[in-house]
């Protein structure tokens, strides 16, 4: 027989085995907690500004001469929730490929940051946006117009990536 005895249960004394006194003790603890000071932040008034290590909504880095993304599709491949769709097309620029369509379905996104980690161009990074509100399923699918953010607004995250990635 490959059964291990629950030795912990054997160590309990009679009153503990009765269970009820222990519950009463626990309830005493929780009751006392009710009167302790609270730690809630009053959110819309007191806005929390995350640090560079925070993984908010993924965004595409936009430089002065255009987006960094070359539509390699690695973010789409690595995404465990299949949130990203990329459609590449050809451009005249030196890097001959660009995303004609880049969509992130924020209903699917789980903010894991794999897309950022796998990106060979550091073109998709996690931003600090965390209060996302959508009123329809279609609206939650963000296209390039909503995803492209100028690089000057992403310096914290890029600095964090340089140090720790």
């Amino acid at each position: 027989m490959n059964i291990r005895k629950n030795t912990e249960a054997e160590r309990l004394n009679f009153w503990e085995k009765l269970y009820l006194p222990e519950i009463a003790k626990g309830m005493g603890i929780t009751f006392r907690q009710m009167f302790k000071p609270k730690f809630t932040r009053q959110y819309p008034e007191e806005v929390w500004i995350p640090t560079g290590s925070y993984r908010g909504r993924p965004v595409l880095v936009n430089e002065d001469d255009g987006e960094r993304c070359i539509a390699c599709g690695l973010c789409s491949r690595v995404c465990p929730a299949l949130a990203i769709e990329v459609q590449a097309a050809e451009t005249e620029r030196e890097k001959e490929r660009y995303p004609v369509k880049f969509e992130i379905n924020m209903l699917r996104c789980i903010y894991c940051g794999f897309c950022e980690e796998v990106c060979p161009e550091e073109a998709i990074v996690m931003s600090k946006d965390y209060d996302l509100v959508f009123t329809s399923q279609e609206e939650a699918i963000l296209g390039k117009d909503k995803l492209l953010v100028h690089i000057s607004k992403l310096q914290d995250r890029l600095e964090f990536l340089r140090q720790y990635k």
Partner: peptide, 9 residues
């Protein structure tokens, strides 16, 4: 076919 799709998709 150029850039139509990644092969793994």
């Amino acid at each position: 076919f150029r850039f139509k799709s990644r092969v793994w998709d």
